[in-house]
């Protein structure tokens, strides 16, 4: 496994080398982007966590005040209004609306509280006695619930962010520890294979060119011998034709070089 896991199953060709190189580049860019995203989210996350902590403490106080205002009501009404309140509840006056907030590509919901006007189930509660306290208690509790709703937004954001950060971090780690080393390994492997091929090719070419040179040299020698023979014959006729004949042995050499580059391709 270790040998195979180290690289991708590709043929060591120049084309796949190019592919791998662009892949590595992409992975690196993606990594740095994700890393930044994760950092941004974590920053946000920490801020939310801090605010949750604060809000939870605040909630304790607010709820205490609210509970106390209910005590005031029972003092003023001189009895229990709980049951009556439960029975007269019909339509929610206090509702929430969910909104979205975009943090580094993550949609965090944000609850917004609003009151549905015109719904008033408890307008007459405590009509004969304690109505003002009831009214005040309602306001206190409405404020308390607003705090709670705020806290609920934070908490939902917390849960979602927690999840998203986990996913992002997993990706970052995957890129950093698996994809990038693997791609690098593949590139290394392709390079070494290509180098190997190069060396083989070079050696082969050397061999070929050596053989060719030998052949050429033999041909030259033969030619020379013939030429000398001819020259010897020509000496008899005259010296004039010797120069143009000398250009000819260069031509196969040029051809050999062209063949060389062709192979590299």
């Amino acid at each position: 496994m270790s040998g195979a896991a180290g690289r991708e199953p590709v043929f060591p060709t120049r084309q796949s080398l190019g592919l791998m190189k662009s892949k590595l580049k992409g992975a690196e860019v993606g990594h740095s982007l994700l890393k930044r995203k994760s950092e941004a989210l974590t920053k946000r996350f920490r801020e939310i966590t801090r605010r949750i902590d604060e809000a939870k403490q605040k909630m304790g106080r607010v709820m205490q005040i609210a509970a106390f205002s209910l005590a005031e009501v029972s003092y003023a009404v001189g009895g229990d209004i709980g049951y009556q309140v439960q029975e007269s509840a019909k339509q929610a006056r206090f509702r929430v609306r969910a909104k979205q907030e975009n943090v580094s590509g993550v949609f965090l919901p944000h609850f917004e509280s609003y009151t549905e006007e015109g719904i008033n189930d408890f307008g007459l509660t405590g009509l004969g006695k304690g109505g003002q306290q009831v009214q005040r208690c309602r306001e206190t509790y409405a404020r308390a619930v607003e705090t709670l709703v705020e806290l609920a937004s934070l908490q939902t954001a917390f849960v979602i962010l927690d999840e998203v950060i986990k996913v992002v971090n997993r990706r970052v780690n995957a890129i950093e520890h698996v994809i990038i080393p693997r791609t690098e390994n593949t590139i290394k492997y392709i390079n070494s294979e290509l180098d190997e091929l190069d060396r083989e090719e070079f050696y082969r070419l050397k061999k070929v060119s050596g053989k060719k040179q030998r052949d050429v040299a033999a041909a030259d020698a033969e030619l020379l011998a013939r030429r000398e023979q001819e020259a010897a014959e020509a000496i008899a006729q005259g010296d004039t034709k010797a120069k143009p004949e000398e250009e000819a042995p260069d031509a196969p050499d040029v051809l050999g070089e062209q063949e060389d580059t062709d192979v590299i391709f």
Partner: peptide, 26 residues
């Protein structure tokens, strides 16, 4: 999107208070 209500499970006083705030819906 459709979530617009609050719900409560609690003792009588807590529920009464929260209902007074107007979260009750039947």
């Amino acid at each position: 999107k459709d979530r617009q209500f609050l719900a409560v499970i609690g003792d009588e006083d807590s529920v009464t208070g929260l209902l007074l705030a107007g979260i009750g819906h039947v």
